[in-house]
Design a protein around this nucleic acid. Sequence first.
DNA 1: GTACATCCTGTAGCGGCTACAGACACAAGG
DNA 2: CCTTGTGTCTGTAGCCGCTACAGGATGTAC
Lengths: 129, 129
Amino acid sequence: MHSIGTASKRSGVHIETIRYYEREGILPPAERTASGRRVYDEDGIARLRFIRHCRELGFAIRDAQALLSLTAAPMPCAEAQLIAQRNLDTVRSKIAELSVMERELSALVDQCGTHDKHCAILNDLFAED
Amino acid sequence: MHSIGTASKRSGVHIETIRYYEREGILPPAERTASGRRVYDEDGIARLRFIRHCRELGFAIRDAQALLSLTAAPMPCAEAQLIAQRNLDTVRSKIAELSVMERELSALVDQCGTHDKHCAILNDLFAED
DNA sequence: GTACATCCTGTAGCGGCTACAGACACAAGG
DNA sequence: CCTTGTGTCTGTAGCCGCTACAGGATGTAC
């Protein structure tokens, strides 16, 4: 049995974040000692790590919660794959958006300094469309 | 002279967002009619479009504000370039993070279905590290 | 026994909007 | 003049996923 501090260190999830997850119902409420302190067993720590991995892969916390609850289902694959695919789509469209930004920004940065009179960056931002 | 609705349509910035920018001091307070309605001239609309372009390029609103105020400076280029370069760095590191996610997620999605017994996605998320 | 670390709850803040509620204002038609 | 419909106003609360306190209780080591 472990304190929240130990669970935090071993799972890589900040203490405040653990409490936040509990408050939000992402995780089941932790057991408590007589004096009211949270206590975590290995499963509890594994769940924290699970959520962290989900977040590192870009899943929304609600999706992380859904995936976690799927681990108790008999045939979780199809559902899990669906959620993962949706997230993959989201990640890819974010990359696409950022790539557009990257191209335009680097063009702007390069242009700047080539014009004597006006700043290319500011000019461009003022353009009609 | 234009109403906020017209300014919104012509700049592509939502009405609520325009008021938000004013509240936050991103934009100078708009002129008002006798009855208290906001009024925008062509310059005001141009400023709104400027902010929108900044946002579309990923600039934080505070940076957008800084860039906007640079348009009144005599030698804005160096400063503008600095802000743009910082933003470009941010955008690039976001792309890098998302690319890692993309690779890992697509591997997971592909793996799923190849194992009969356990879901590869959920297994992976439960892994030690 | 006394420091000091750790934990608790509750609340407020971040960024960048978005979405109301409830009250005024204005233009067009009857 | 009155109604109807649309536009606008202020103020506040919510979204996401935390993060950062304040102020108090509890646990541990010397």
